[in-house]
Each structure stands twice: as C-alpha cells, then as structure tokens.
Amino acid sequence: MATLRQDRIRKGLNITLFLAPVIVLFVLFFLFPLFFTAQTSLMKWKGIGEMEFIGLKNFERMFGDDTFQLALKNNLIWALASGFIQVPLALLVALILNRKPKGWGALRTIFFLPNVISAVAIAMMWTQIYNPGHGLLNTILAPFFPQLAQFHWLGDVSTSLGAVIAQSVIYIGYFMIILMAAATNIPDELYEAAQLDGATSWQQEWKITIPMLRGTLVTAATLAMAYGIRHFEATFLMTGGGPAHSTTTMGIILYQQMDELQYGRAGAVAIILIAFGTGMIVLLRALFGNKDPMSDASQ
C-alpha cells in the first residue's frame, strides 16, 4: 500500500515537473498579457506612474475617433476580401489540383511558397513592383494605358488600400492546402456513382465536392476573415497606414497609440482586436460544435 501511494506521489511530481516549463511560458506570454491588456484598457496610463481608472473612456474615445472608424472599415474590407476573394480562389485551385493533373504536387508546393517568405521581403518586393518609375506593374501596363506610366499605386488615396489588399492574393496557398486535405476525405464511391450516372467533372465538383467541403469552407472563410481583422504587417511595411490614413487598420492604430505612450488606448484597441479576431472563430466553433481550437497551424 505504501509503495502504491509513493508511486502516485512520484507520478504526480513527474507530471508537474514536465508541465512546469510550458506553464511558466504560458503564464508569462499569454495569461499575464491578456489580464494586463484587459486592465490597462480601463486605465489612463502612460507607462510610468500610477494607473488611473477611467472606465470605458478609452473605448468611447477610440470608437468616436474618425481614424479609428476608418481603420475599422478597412479591416472589414480586408476581412471580406480575404473571406470572399481569397478563399473562393483557393477553392478553385484546390478543385483543379485535387484531380491530380500533371505536376500537381509541385504546383501545390509552389503555391504555398509565399507563406514561408518574410513579410518584410514580400512588402519590399511589392513596394518596388508598385514603384511609379521603374515598377513591374507600370512597365506591364504602360503599353496599354500610357496615362498610367507614372501612376503611384501606393501613394494615391484612391488605390492605396486596393493595392495593399491585392498583393495578399499570393497567400491563397494556405487555404488551398486546407481545402485539398479535406477533399481527400470525401469517399471515392460518391464520384464513382456520379460517373456511372454520366455526371461531368463540373457537375461532380458542384454537386459532390463543394457540398462535402461546406464545413471546411466555412472554417477557411472564418479564419481568413479573422486574419483580415488582425491585419498589420504588410500595411505597416508598405504604407505605414498612409497616405492620409487611407490604408490604416486597427493594428496600425494600436502601434501608433503605443508609440505615443497611450498604453490605455492601445489596450482598448487590443481588446477590440481580440474580441473581433478571436470572438469570430469562437462563435463559429460554438455554432458548428467544434471545440478543438486548432484548425490552423501557422501564421
């Protein structure tokens, strides 16, 4: 009996030791930041001295601010573009590659490639592609639209947001992989039966693949929209939110508030970001009964 008890204590000790490092990292870099952000969002605080409790004033101030409203609108455009342009394009490519045409494996590998390249390199590359003088885009367009030869895509308020969003289409490989993986789970018998009934490829995709992928499509679109809400890096690197705030996003505003030592307001923006960016996914999971938080593994 004594040894059994000793065994249990030893096992408990072992489990605790194995979990201790992960819990330390998790508390320091997830739990503490979460509580700290929630706390500062209700405070007036500039990083030094006492925090002063001001209730929801930071939130009122942000929602009442013209630039923040613009950021919210831009994030919404980002979210819609990601969910309803990126994901359908990814679906189109996934459907084609799922039929295993010649070289499909290599194409799948290449289409995912931009996802492993740093945002800094990609942003610098696109800044050059959009360059009004020697950029690739204007060089291609100039013969057809001579009036665009010197057009500054990122510098003009009418095109800046579109230009930053348009380059994000190179990231569809991520959603393509998720959709291709889900499509391999569709039983072959469904297609065999459809073929016997004389259904064409397009009819099979339309009547079998797409309906069977519905759940994954909803997940992919939700993830894409959540990424649209969080969007920060490419904009920060390509335009910094300008010109005239035309490309600003909530992430950019968070950074700017932090830069001005407005930690309370930065906290409020962070809470709004978490509420929208995380709440959307949690809501979807609740609706579709999927409790596993992990349906993506990168970014």
């Binding site: 979460l34 952000t37 992430g251 962070a270 970001l273």
Partner: peptide, 11 residues
C-alpha cells in the same frame, strides 16, 4: 493560437 499577437505588444 486564437490570440492576435499584435494585441500583446504593450504587455
């Protein structure tokens, strides 16, 4: 994974 890391810049 659900937390946008950008929201943790200040903490």
């Amino acid at each position: 994974i659900l937390i946008p890391i950008i929201s943790f810049l200040v903490p």
